[in-house]
């Protein structure tokens, strides 16, 4: 039986144009919307399937304001059993602060005799891209951690973890309790069904107050990169452009 904690973040959707808030201090997602990143969607999927395979449970956690309940409900809708929100403004928290806040919850649960066997986080959040929350968390909890985990199989109290993000597939065999930072691409996140959505709507969200003040991310400012000036040379339209395109390929020396 593996009880799993999966941590997600509400981040502004940035597939289109990125807009900064008036003070330039953060990214404004009011127009484009918010979501959890695809790494985290995959983490939720792995959490739900590991718990399902072992008869364990899934708790989903976020550190964020009241709006971030939307992301918790998204995880509840696909099978998470419980949800916890650490009530804080995510922008005030640097990666070390987030790791410390999660560690506190993990330790408190262990103190209550309901420890988490596995803690999953996304490898890096879509907005801040810090690549380190899971690793700091593992150090605070003194647990092994694998970054870039894409596929996870449980056998007894060990995990077989696969990661192909650095080239050939690396296979790890780690004892639980452990921390994994999940990278998209190994599993297909499931879609919520109607009963999942209904359950998520009604689920109780546990709200926790953070214990200490965060040190912050150290952000001094943000700058949106202006799009580079276009100097595109249009070679033509449709297949009639093929001869010119081939000339360019030859000039570039890529035709063997």
């Amino acid at each position: 039986m593996a009880d799993v904690l999966v941590c997600v973040k509400r981040a502004p959707d940035t597939s289109g144009e990125v807009v900064l808030t008036a003070d330039g201090g953060s990214i404004d997602g009011r127009y484009a919307g918010y979501s959890m990143s695809s790494h985290e969607e995959c983490a939720v999927e792995i959490a739900v399937s590991v718990a399902g395979d072992t008869g364990g449970s899934v708790t989903v956690l976020t550190l964020g304001d009241d709006d971030s309940v939307e992301q918790l409900r998204a995880a509840l809708a696909v099978g998470a059993d419980e949800a916890v929100r650490i009530d804080a403004t995510a922008d005030d928290y640097g990666p070390a602060d987030v790791a410390a806040a999660i560690a506190e919850v993990v330790q408190a649960r262990a103190g209550e005799g309901r420890p988490f066997d596995l803690v999953l986080v996304g490898n890096d959040a879509a907005d801040t891209g810090d690549h380190q929350v899971g690793i700091r968390l593992a150090h605070l909890l003194d647990r092994p951690v694998v970054a870039g985990a894409q596929e996870v199989a449980v056998s007894g109290d060990r995990l077989e973890v696969r990661s192909s993000v650095s080239g050939p597939t690396e296979v790890f065999d780690v004892p639980m309790p452990a921390v994994l930072t999940v990278w998209e691409g190994g599993v297909e996140p499931r879609y919520p069904n109607i009963s999942g959505r209904m359950k998520a709507k009604k689920a109780r969200i546990e709200v926790l107050e953070p214990s200490g003040a965060p040190r912050g991310s150290g952000r001094l400012g943000l700058r949106v990169l202006p799009p580079p000036e276009s100097n595109v040379e249009v070679l033509g339209e449709g297949k009639t452009a093929a001869p010119r395109l081939v000339d360019v390929l030859r000039e570039l020396g890529v035709v063997r």
Binding site: T14, V18, L20, I27, A126, D127, T128, G129, S217, G218, R219, L220, G221, L222, R223, V224, L225
Partner: peptide
Amino acid sequence: ERQVVGGAVLERVA
């Protein structure tokens, strides 16, 4: 300066 938001935004840090 470092890349955030997939490189669309640069964040200045010490």
